[in-house]
């Protein structure tokens, strides 16, 4: 049945029941004026911000984790002073980011540091990326550190350099170990993009709110928003599960 016709028929009712009323709310929040397109406009921003933030987060995370691990695994008596300074910077970065709320970081970046910027969506993505970087760094570092030190020793005792051992022995194994945590971090990041509406980023929540100011009924737009996030997360979890199963096959062959 045509949704509009259904809506009109319910609207004509004197006393619509709960379901008929719910359908009318949904109709106004989704079909009316082609509003469903609006959510997808927001969704594309959400994905765009997630991808940018993820890229920044992974690059930052790998850099910081490399510095931190390399610093901790230096031979005693052969400390590199430059590495020491960079390591200290990395530690301060991780501590501050993990010790302050995402929301406050967004406000500081959006209203203080980049107060004059008008690309607030980008500022939001940058902030999310910087935030994510700290968590990714700790996940990677944890994965590298949790690996049996015998693996590093075996590589080094064969005469392989630190970087070669990392590249061929440690990182491939650590990657498999950290994949679930990285996946979770990605899901958190995806959901955290909803926070950038604080600095006026135009993602799904922004458009849901805009639709509420037209329909004056917040229930349906926010439920639709929640459903869209849920679908995204489910799709991603499914992909992640597939990848993990494939990687695990090499263990059992």
């Amino acid at each position: 049945m045509d949704p509009t016709a259904l809506y009109e028929s319910f609207k004509a009712l004197q006393n619509p029941n709960f379901f008929q009323d719910a359908y009318m709310q949904f109709y106004k929040a989704w079909f009316a004026e082609d509003r469903w397109l609006t959510y997808f406009k927001g969704l594309s921003t959400t994905l765009y911000v997630t991808v940018i933030a993820l890229a920044i987060g992974v690059v930052l995370g790998v850099l910081v984790a490399t510095v931190r691990t390399a610093h901790d695994q230096q031979r005693p008596g052969r400390h590199n002073p430059f590495l020491g300074i960079v390591n200290a910077v990395c530690r301060v970065y991780v501590t501050i980011i993990r010790g302050t709320p995402m929301m406050v970081q967004l406000m500081i970046m959006g209203f203080a540091v980049f107060a004059t910027s008008r690309e607030k969506t980008l500022v939001g993505a940058l902030t999310l990326g910087i935030n994510s970087g700290a968590y990714v760094a700790e996940i990677i570092r944890g994965g590298l550190m949790s690996l049996d030190p015998g693996q590093m020793e075996a590589g080094r005792s064969l005469g392989l350099g630190y970087l070669d051992t990392m590249r061929f022995v440690v990182i491939p194994q650590a990657f498999k170990a950290i994949l679930p945590s990285l996946g979770n971090e990605f899901i958190v990041l995806l959901k955290d993009t909803s926070l950038i509406s604080v600095v006026s980023g135009k993602e799904i929540v922004y458009f849901a709110r805009a639709i509420v100011t037209k329909t004056y009924e917040p229930m349906a737009p926010y439920l639709i928003t929640a459903a869209m996030y849920l679908v995204l997360v489910l799709i991603f979890s499914w992909l992640q599960g597939k990848l993990e199963r494939r990687l695990r096959q090499s263990d059992r062959r």
Partner: peptide, 29 residues
């Protein structure tokens, strides 16, 4: 690294690289 290339080491817990085949374990270094 140069010095270690000339000293082979065998560990109590083998420490083979589980992410590579036996051949790759042997030929990597």
């Amino acid at each position: 690294d140069k010095i270690r290339q000339q000293m082979g080491m065998v560990f109590q817990h083998f420490n083979l690289f589980p992410n590579m085949t036996v051949r790759k374990n042997i030929t990597l270094a």
